[in-house]
Design a binder for these strands. Structure first.
Length: 308
DNA sequence: AGCCAGGCTCTCG
DNA sequence: CGAGAGCATGGC
């Protein structure tokens, strides 16, 4: 077992980050550690867990590789992927400055300071998840994603625990329509995932490359995929490719947040967030979590937020 | 029990 | 073109 330390930019709170929105399976946060299997480009499965050992203003993360022996190259790659996912090197300074200057947003900076915006573990996983998220509630989507991963991903035993690697596109392509339907996907979504997987397997699509296109072009490429509309494309750009100038303005939760905090309607959101540039997604995400938290507190289950 | 939930595609007029 | 139907499962 090997241990590494990762020093994120301050402020950073692992806890706030994964309580703001629970991570999608197979990432698991237990209140203290984030558990995950990373699949390297060489195909090694690297199980790990990460916990925060330094405070929010001087953050330090301890990453434990949970396999007896991991090649050095694989370990380095796993740490890079993890760091990207955690946004450990991303800078929220300018987002915070904007929020500080806005009386609507300023109150969020105390309670949520150090929370990183929702990010997919990898681009491919992020696009698959985004498709499953369509229309249904997050709760339902999480349950379907869990079944998809447990059914088609690779289990990795770690002591008493079993972690899973997210299924590869070829795993999904091989599973076929009936299998996907039994895992809880609708006919349409099963077909969307199959189609996407086949496209990825045949290397007709490079999602990393899409991330480098101008936003409008990227949206065109993405919405040309079967089952990907504007909502999915924008959610994926923001969370999967970390294009933070993009906000999924059609999203129900985002619309509620902007309506409640700024009184804006759906069509006013995109022009409004343009002023935030590359800070748009982090700020919109803070608004989303803030509004959801308020709802949860009203329902009497906001306790998770008390501990930081 | 029935409707809605962080949409999309297909069909029809 | 715009409107409408159908869809998966879980919660209220």
């Amino acid at each position: 077992m090997r241990t590494y330390e990762l020093e994120p930019r301050a402020p950073f709170s692992l806890h706030l980050t994964f309580v703001g929105t629970e991570p999608a399976f197979p990432s698991v946060y237990d209140g203290r550690y984030l558990w995950r299997v990373v699949r390297t480009s060489g195909g090694e499965l690297v199980p790990l867990r990460v916990g925060q050992i330094g405070p929010r203003e001087e953050p330090l993360l301890r990453v434990e590789l949970l396999a007896p022996s991991v090649p050095e190259g694989a370990a380095e790659e796993a740490l890079r992927v993890l760091s990207r996912f955690l946004c450990a090197q991303d800078d929220l300074t300018s987002a915070y400055a904007r929020m500080e200057a806005d009386p609507v947003l300023r109150p969020m900076l105390g309670p949520l300071r150090g929370m990183m915006p929702w990010t997919a573990f990898t681009p491919v996983e992020g696009l698959m998840d985004a498709i499953v998220f369509q229309q249904i509630s997050l709760r339902v989507a999480f349950s379907i994603i869990r079944r998809l991963v447990k059914g088609l991903g690779q289990p990795v035993r770690v002591g008493e625990r079993v972690l899973y690697a997210f299924p590869r596109p070829e795993d999904i392509a091989e599973a076929g329509r009936e299998r996907l339907r039994k895992l809880g996907l609708s006919r349409n979504k099963a077909d969307y995932l199959l189609s996407l997987s086949k496209t990825l397997v045949s290397s007709q699509l490079d999602l990393e490359a899409v991330g480098k296109l101008p936003v409008e072009e990227a949206i065109k490429v993405l919405t040309a995929l079967r089952g990907v509309g504007r909502w999915t494309a924008e959610l994926f750009l923001a969370t999967g490719l970390k294009r933070w100038e993009v906000v999924p303005a059609d999203d129900l939760g985002i619309r509620r947040a902007f309506a409640h905090l700024y009184g804006l309607g759906r069509d006013q959101i995109r022009p409004f967030v343009a002023r935030w540039g590359g800070d748009a997604w982090p700020i919109a995400y803070y608004m989303l979590v803030w509004c959801e938290r308020r709802q949860r507190v009203l329902k009497g289950s906001g306790l998770l937020y008390e501990q930081v």
